[in-house]
């Protein structure tokens, strides 16, 4: 005996619609995202693991990895420190011009990577404002590591602040005020109250900032000068290899960035889950 047909709830689609829409969405994602992602792995390993490892152990590739790590190690802490300062300033105080400041922080998001790199050249390049002074003093910024760092800092500038500002705004100032009335000083409040409360949010911003810092291509491409083993980051190394029709090697090096992306996604998901739990806790904490 079949069960009597249950009337559908108003928000429910008929099974046929459900299946058709799901299938269409999955095909779209597969064609656009999943197939290219799979292509990176397949192309990298097509001619065997031996060639794959050989491509990664190439001295130029290793130099690119080292440079990428160095650039991220400088840019990420700088922008994390900025993010904390900006979030503290904007969410803990009231002052004229605050909303302007907040929208200026987003500015680099609206700037094409090529332009982000270009402004560094305009400032520090041979014909730039500080160019002549710098070359007189033997400092090379453009087509050298400092330029790559500057361009990366510009591009990844808003990431941590963008995560922290809404989060700290939602948290409110009560706990910090409580700590103040209880006699805590500025650093004590920051270390023992604020930092523990925002740590997951901060980490989330750092993860996103790091992913962009290591993967940035356009901006870095403008300032690097593509000097092999010296000013090539991983993405630039990929471009060079690809341009020389060394596809296998290009995909092998690109797979490093692919792994970085996967790690970023996993970290992002688990941090989102943690924030979700924290919010649920917070919801239980505050009265209905």
């Amino acid at each position: 005996m079949s069960a009597p047909a249950r009337p559908r709830r108003p928000g429910e689609d008929p099974p046929a619609v459900r299946i058709a829409l799901t299938a269409l969405a999955l095909v779209f994602l597969a064609v656009l995202v999943l197939v290219p992602a799979a292509a990176v792995v397949v192309e990298a390993l097509k001619d065997g693991a031996g060639l794959f490892w050989k491509a990664l152990r190439d001295p130029d590739a290793l130099a690119a990895v080292r440079l990428t790590l160095l650039v991220a190690a400088i840019a990420v802490p700088l922008n994390a420190a900025f993010g904390l300062a900006a979030a503290w300033s904007v969410t803990r105080f009231r002052f004229p011009g605050k909303s302007v400041l907040v929208s200026l922080i987003d500015l680099p998001f609206g700037v094409s990577p090529v332009i982000s790199g270009m402004v560094t050249v305009l400032l520090f390049g041979a014909q730039g404002w500080f160019g002549p002074w710098l070359s007189d003093h033997g400092v090379k910024v453009v087509f050298a590591v400092p330029g790559i760092v500057l361009a990366t800092v510009f591009v990844t500038f808003p990431f941590v602040a963008r995560e922290l500002i809404p989060f700290m705004e939602a948290q409110g100032t009560e706990e910090e005020e409580a700590a103040l009335v209880l006699g805590a000083g500025g650093w004590q409040i920051f270390r023992s109250v604020t930092l523990p409360n925002v740590k997951w949010s901060l980490l989330y911003g750092v993860v996103l900032c790091n992913a962009r810092a290591m993967g940035e291509f356009g901006a870095v491409s403008v300032v690097s000068g593509h000097i092999r083993g010296v000013t090539n980051t991983i993405p630039l190394q990929v471009e060079i290899l690809y341009g020389e029709y060394q596809f296998r090697a290009a995909f092998a090096v690109a797979s490093l960035l692919f792994v970085l992306a996967l790690v970023t996604l996993v970290a992002k998901k688990s941090l989102e889950w943690r924030q979700h739990l924290a919010r649920r806790e917070g919801a239980r904490r505050s009265p209905a």
Partner: peptide, 11 residues
Amino acid sequence: LVFQHYALFRH
């Protein structure tokens, strides 16, 4: 000072 919503340090 006792805050309206207590402002206990949640961690």
